[in-house]
Write a protein that binds this DNA or RNA. Structure first.
Lengths: 357, 357
DNA sequence: GGTAATTGCACCATCGATGGTGCATAAATG
DNA sequence: CATTTATGCACCATCGATGGTGCAATTACC
């Protein structure tokens, strides 16, 4: 038996060994056999033969016939960032919890590539798609429409499709208040001491900037011009922005808001070029979450979206007939707080022990 | 045309509109038409009709018929960790570069779940599998064997399958030397000041521990007993280990080697519980790479595997008839150095600009 | 004992694409 | 002009699973 298992067993093989027809075998194996009035006895025999021959359904064939593949896609811009990789992790559990198989792809912030990768998913007949952070959501939406593919946006504004978004405005306000309050405990603070770096002309950035300015307005009564430096989502462009600021003012702002952890990496690169300087007197807010950032030598406040709630609501929205938008409040993470992540849900199979050496 | 595109066009649809047979249409669309002596003219007509009807091949059907799916799997333990998410990112490019579609899944360090996820990949008829960091590589290997699935281990020792591994021994030696050298510049150092935290009874940990001890041996002439605290791959267990050490000695070791960034998170959690203490006098080595760790208030040396080279060699090894093992040297990253990551390869489509506010 | 209802399953077309084979028609060759 | 060779394509079985339909054999019922 272990020798002959070179080729995978099919329902036809089981049909031969069991003496039942292929369709009977199929219905036993896919669980529809009661509906088809297959006898308990026949079913039991086929199930035991299936186990014996290590039968595994060919899902490609099933998908082809039934036009339901059991695949759910997730389009990310990139993987290697705490937010998106954590989303991939959570997405995988949520998908499997629902009996689906996740296909996670990245569009690398390139509209052309986003389209291509989504088309490759469609070619494999995924049943639905989660779009998280596409550069060109409308282009992706268009493709999904044409393919009749149900889809939801995650953390993207939904002009056409359903969306679950973090409350960027509220989050930015919370973050801005937090850093201003902290910076004020360190000394007098003026509107001109409070900056924002990063972002781009997208919905999320606009909302965050609006929240940032709203808080500055209410705290200082006025908003300084030029308190925002747009850098796109690039570590190197952000590092350059800090270089420029530093060259001009001889220091960093007392207090600033960084649009994402990618931009935060830009700050780190800038600091890498200024070894020896401690930058202990700055207060930073980062609209993103990375546990490491929590332990830098200066206070870092972060905003952490509630990813699993967002995804859960996303699966709900797939059922919805018409486009809806749901907002989920993110969480403010104070400095030096290492929160739990999806890794904590893992059980580490080998218990700790000490090597005999 | 845009109205009627509700259902996806098939070769049969194109066969009707073009007047050619389905097999002719298929061969034109999959590029085998010259071999089949289809005329230039017919091919051109069909290609133009295909474009017009937005034809996209159903890859499930193709896979079923040709028993080549064009899917490559990557099994990770987890996504949300710099090393593995960076691997996912690089894997995706490498796969697409080869005309394949990546399917990345995580086994969450659970042998049972690893098996299940790999079986789900096999059910979709993936052509080959990259195994990175499985808890039970032999179990996975067994399943692949049974399914006749070509597979390579990445950064795992290859008892049965081909492997590309980081040189853990050499990397651990480089890392240990680096932190000892640094710590020695801060004051006198004894063998008892140099510890290792994290890891587990797996190949990588064993090699790293061997390298660690070899260097201690050569520097101090002897190895202290009990200089190693095994914690498994869990942030919380690692935090507890630091707690224990701290409770016993009233401080952290002057100089220590942390087995992975997951264990590193444990250090951060420990520090979160000791706010106010700066821990400025420690020197840390982390056998893993996270750009944020580079900028903590104490020196952190890191080891960063050359992921893209490992994956490239992995694709090569798939062709190989018999199991081979290849070692790739990792890179030592000194403190306060922010290196480039895969994100730098992305082009940020919207150029930086400043909001008019 | 004859008809009706139920049970248990087999048959067959189908999903979309592929590739081996074979057969007209046209062109080349002697 | 007869025969060989080349050209261009159609036909058909096939990959593995599914689900509608139909039909014998058994059981129930009057």
């Amino acid at each position: 038996m272990s020798e002959k298992e070179r080729k995978k067993a099919t329902i036809y093989d089981l049909s031969v060994v069991s003496g039942a027809s292929p369709s009977t075998v199929a219905s036993v194996l896919n669980g529809t056999w009661r509906k088809r009035r297959i006898s308990e006895e026949t079913a039991a025999k086929i199930l035991s033969l299936a186990r014996e021959h290590d039968y595994k359904a060919n899902l490609q064939a099933r998908a082809l016939r039934s036009s339901r593949s059991g695949l759910v896609g997730l389009l990310l811009p990139v993987y290697d960032n705490r937010f998106f990789s954590s989303m991939a992790q959570t997405f995988e559990s949520e998908a499997r919890k629902r009996g689906l198989v996740p296909m996670v792809v990245s569009g690398r912030r390139d509209p052309e590539e986003e389209r291509r990768t989504v088309e490759s998913l469609i070619a494999y007949a995924i049943d639905s798609l989660f779009i998280a952070g596409a550069t060109d959501p409308d282009g992706v939406h268009e493709i999904c429409m044409r393919a009749g593919l149900p889809h939801v946006n995650i953390d993207l504004p939904g002009k056409f499709a359903s969306s679950v978004i973090a409350d960027n405005r509220q989050g930015a306000e919370a973050l801005t208040s937090a850093i201003i309050r902290h910076a004020e405990t360190l000394g007098p603070l003026h509107s001109g001491d409070v900056y924002l770096f990063g972002g781009r002309n997208d919905h999320a950035s606009r909302e965050r900037i609006a929240g940032f300015h709203a808080v500055k307005q209410s705290v200082f009564g006025a908003v300084t011009k030029g308190d925002i430096e747009i850098t796109g989502y690039s570590p190197s462009a952000t590092a350059l922005a800090f270089d420029r600021f530093f060259d001009k003012h001889g220091r960093l702002p007392k207090c600033f808001f960084i649009n994402s952890s990618i931009n935060f990496e830009g700050l780190l690169r800038f600091m890498g070029r200024h070894d020896g300087e401690t930058f202990g007197d700055i207060v930073v807010g980062c609209f993103d979450y990375d546990p490491f950032a929590s332990f830098l030598p200066f206070p870092v406040y972060m905003i952490r979206p509630n990813i699993s709630k967002m995804l859960e609501r996303g699966f709900d929205l797939l059922e919805e007939p018409k486009p809806l938008t749901i907002m989920i409040e993110p969480e403010l993470v104070p400095p030096r707080t290492a929160l739990e992540g999806p890794l904590d849900a893992l059980n580490d199979p080998s218990p700790p022990f000490v090597f005999a050496d």
